[in-house]
Design a binder for these strands. Structure first.
Lengths: 343, 343
DNA sequence: GTTAGCACTCTAGTCAGATGAGTGCTAACC
DNA sequence: GGTTAGCACTCATCTGACTAGAGTGCTAAC
């Protein structure tokens, strides 16, 4: 348990280090207006904080920098939670005032705004298609053996996939099936589509349609979850401006990881559908390359279910307060906007 | 005009520099098996080549490196044009053997293969939608005031766009128009769509349809060239492995430029529909950030018209021979595949 | 409990000298 | 005349010594 003064000093050190990126010494803390103690006193407390694991010393005659445990404490107990800073609010409001009428556009644009505002890397996870439902299905023949399957979801997203059509299936048959599918399966959540395909249509189709087996296979692949979640990255090169990453090798590992979609997906997928804000510091990200990075994530949702997430990746020495504030506002407003569109 | 021996020496220097990235001295050239002269002789020739502008010297007591003019000469006259190296051919053939039945997937996958094979950055320009034609158009209502416009092209690509529907337009009217459009405008090249919309449908619509003006506006925005060309980047971080870019600042400029879609588009769009291979060295790229980069581009085409391009970006010290070989094979095979699919 | 003072530590920067790769020139060689 | 050996010269890079300065830890005084 930290004393009030220790908390104050830890707070001051993290604040200083966040802006300067240099180890902070007792003298500079003492000179700040808000801590009324001499360097010597502060040195004593710093030594204690180091023993407790909240601070680290790069070498004997340098100042202290926060350890991961120190950041964790800072984030959990000390972050000045100014959820509504005026300047930022303005930019975000402007963003939502713009007329963008496709969900995808909004997400993409939001990623850009975020990385520009924060000067970190933003990673947005597109709306989780699985929680939306079918609005319309269509199969457009391209030539004798291929067709394009088009799925329009309740949020207006369009997914398409090319499928091959086995010979012997007539156009009129296909049309019949597609009509049937549209009449029976509209408004069914996408993740239930394949199972309901059999339970709802199976019987009826078997009666009316001659190439039942083959057609079923076609539909099966057409509805296949090609609805992979899309990841929108923006400002990846902002990483290069951080002094801790001026070494090319370190930054290469990070950028390489950012190109690995599956890994990012895993990182951003909210732990258990929860909607809170998460901060993962250093190795809490479970990746060597991110050992000196922090990832802050929030979610946006529809009907109380998390649809996707917003994340900001930066060095562990990150402006937590500001980023968390921005992320909070943006996730809330995104949620509100979705609710308004698709209520 | 260079003598045979000068060409040989220039060739040796470029070759050496490409693999070593260090200024090459007269001694190391002399020791190569293929040049049977003493260092002194080679030094004389090198001095001449420097006077002619083909070589540069970082400082007096260093070896020589090729100048941009030197690279240009190398590319134009000396590249060992081994258009069919076995190892590479194998990988590419394997790639085309994979069953990928959507153009987009092929392009995306090709970008990855290319960057992996070359260890440079690959930039692919998706099929130029403007040169394909309309196969099917559809307008799907989402709610009272919005709809999704879906355009399927002759190459099986699906473009979609959300449009807002002015009040007072009935569903049946819209259906009528869409049917008319499909019957009259199928197989029209996309870039002519908007003009033909008026010339072909204008009269008839004015006769049958009540909200002519408003509907026309809707169709106009629906057919708007949102068919932006897609750019597929892969291996952007490979730039970081090149010794000449171990300085973070330089590489940041390059990566930033790579995120600027319009700039890339301009760079990759083939000069005049020509289908040859282009090599742009250093400042020939017209961008400060690419001053130390070379961009090699080739095109793939359908019906003799260039549909899109494939590009490899690397340092000016690039394995021109290998990359040009690979690019040549890939562009030819892509063209062949497209011809086979959509003949 | 707090603070001033002081010796101590360690990094980063600077500077001189050594090293060595590579050149340019001259004179000798074939 | 073309080619080559020899040699003086240049210049980047490496090394080690030295210094300045920031910061600490400890002790003793307030």
């Amino acid at each position: 348990m930290l004393t009030e003064r220790q908390r104050m000093i830890l707070n001051a050190i993290v604040d200083d280090y966040i802006t300067s990126a240099e180890p902070v010494g007792s003298r500079s803390i003492s000179k700040r207006g808000d801590v009324g103690y001499s360097p010597a006193t502060i040195r004593n407390e710093m030594a204690d904080l180091e023993d407790l694991g909240y601070l680290e010393q790069p070498h004997t005659s340098a100042g202290r920098i926060p350890s991961h445990k120190g950041y964790r404490y800072y984030v959990d107990h000390l972050v000045p939670w100014n959820s509504a800073e005026s300047a930022e609010m303005g930019t975000i409001r402007e963003f939502f005032a713009e007329k963008l009428n496709a969900t995808e556009q909004v997400i993409q644009h939001a990623a850009m705004i975020l990385s520009n505002m924060t000067n970190y890397t933003s990673i947005l996870l597109g709306p989780e298609v699985f929680h939306t439902s079918l609005r319309h299905f269509q199969l457009l023949p391209l030539d004798d053996n291929t067709a394009v399957a088009i799925i329009v979801t309740s949020t207006g997203q369009v997914e398409n996939k090319t499928v091959s059509i086995p010979p012997g299936i007539s156009l009129s048959e296909m049309e019949k099936v597609v009509n049937l599918l549209n009449s029976k399966l509209v408004n069914v959540p996408l993740y239930k589509l394949k199972s309901q395909l059999y339970s709802e249509l199976g019987e009826e189709m078997q009666r009316h349609i001659s190439h039942y087996e083959e057609l079923m296979k076609v539909l099966d692949t057409a509805l296949e979850s090609d609805h992979e979640q899309r990841i929108y990255l923006s400002g990846a090169t902002n990483m290069l401006t951080q002094p801790e990453f001026k070494d090319v090798d370190k930054v290469k590992n990070i950028l390489d990881l950012l190109e690995e979609t599956p890994t990012l997906l895993k990182m951003l997928t909210p732990a258990s559908g929860g909607t809170g804000m998460q901060v993962r510091i250093g190795m809490e990200n479970k990746h060597e390359a991110f050992a000196n990075c922090s990832l802050i994530t929030a979610t946006y949702s529809l009907d109380g279910k998390a649809l996707g997430s917003i994340g900001i990746l930066g060095p562990t020495r990150m402006e937590y307060a500001r980023v968390m504030g921005i992320l909070g506002i943006l996730s809330r407003d995104l949620t509100a906007m979705l609710a308004h569109w698709y209520k």
